[in-house]
Design a protein around this nucleic acid. Structure first.
Length: 307
DNA sequence: AAGACGAAAGTGGTTGA
DNA sequence: TCAACAACTTTCGTCTT
């Protein structure tokens, strides 16, 4: 039995660390916990970063626009044009683009403004804003933003920061907070940008677990705590038998909540849950069916439990 | 009538040759 | 680079409550 930090325990007894320090279940081959991301102590900024901090004095956070560039640029009041849809990417005028430092700063300023805006709508903590800002800056330094919209990289950076710090938000939710609605084309762009920055910046992203989404769904639908407990038990049971591997954790969590609610005699439609979980009814249905089969349950069992 | 179910076809990402 | 593959989505007809 392995105790996971803050998320309870894992039932599998046959657990080992692999060469990367990840916790692997030897029975199912499932990654239970990736190599821990050290959140205590000072962040590991590059030596250049530290130099800058010394240079400008005081504590400089990644989300401070000028932690990277000269303070005189701060005086330049740049209009924020962040929130318009940019189908073909944001392109800076040639003249400005050649100005050393200036372009980078404006780009960064704009991106951080977007990140802050979206983060505040989603009520995300500063640590995530800082993480996202740092990721964006690194992406900018590596030239990953070139040819892509500031928005898509900013959204991707924010999503990555959410993943790193365990905030259960989807790309969909981030785009929704950013633009009010979700255009599939935008979603595709953000997904691409996300994969790009994770790969090229070597970001350590912890595995998403269905359990993390249970409370999001429960809260959104106003379901009682006992349903959450039940759903988490269902997920653990499903995982023990290898059902969670390779499946979208949102759908898994949604199906578990659906079943858990039924077990407590609460009827929520598959559609309601699917909307909150960010998947379709069909996915909820498929996971639900699999779980029912796995646990050898049928409709009558549920009716009995619900009454 | 609304919700649940299931089949079929399409999409975008991953993997392996 | 391309094909095969798995997971998920969309759509739609049918059954159940």
């Amino acid at each position: 039995m392995y105790e996971l930090g803050g998320t309870g325990s894992y039932e599998c007894k046959n657990i080992e660390r692999d060469e990367f320090g990840n916790l692997i279940c030897k029975d199912t081959g499932e990654v239970i916990e990736e190599q821990a991301f050290d959140e205590s102590g000072p962040k590991a900024y590059t030596p250049e970063d530290r130099e800058r901090k010394v240079h400008y004095g005081g504590v400089v956070k990644p989300s401070d626009v000028h932690w990277n560039v000269g303070a005189e640029l701060a005086a330049e009041k740049q209009p924020i044009k962040g929130l318009q849809p940019q189908r073909h990417g944001y392109k800076l005028p040639q003249r400005t683009a050649r100005t050393v430092g200036g372009t980078t700063n404006k780009n960064l300023q704009q991106a951080i403004s977007i990140i802050r805006d979206v983060a505040s709508k989603l009520e995300l903590p500063d640590i995530i804003v800082d993480e996202a800002s740092k990721i964006y800056r690194d992406a900018l330094d590596k030239g990953l933003t070139r040819g892509r919209s500031i928005e898509s990289i900013a959204a991707a950076a924010l999503y990555a920061a959410c993943r790193i710090h365990g905030a259960p938000h989807t790309i969909q939710k981030i785009i929704e907070a950013m633009k009010g609605s979700v255009d599939p084309e935008v979603k595709r762009d953000v997904s691409r940008s996300y994969r790009l920055i994770v790969r090229d910046l070597n970001l350590k992203i912890p595995v998403r677990r269905p359990e993390d989404f249970v409370y999001t769904i429960i809260n959104a639908l106003g379901l009682p705590e006992k349903v959450a407990d039940e759903a988490i038990n269902i997920i653990r049971e499903a995982r023990k038998r290898g059902l969670t591997a390779g499946k979208d954790p949102n759908g898994m969590a949604g199906a578990a909540v659906y079943l858990a609610a039924l077990r407590h005699g609460i009827r929520k439609t598959q559609k309601e849950i699917a909307n909150v979980a960010g998947v379709t009814e069909v996915t909820i249905r498929n996971r639900y069916k699999e779980i029912m089969k796995l646990l050898n349950l049928d409709q009558e069992d549920l009716a009995r439990m619900g009454s």
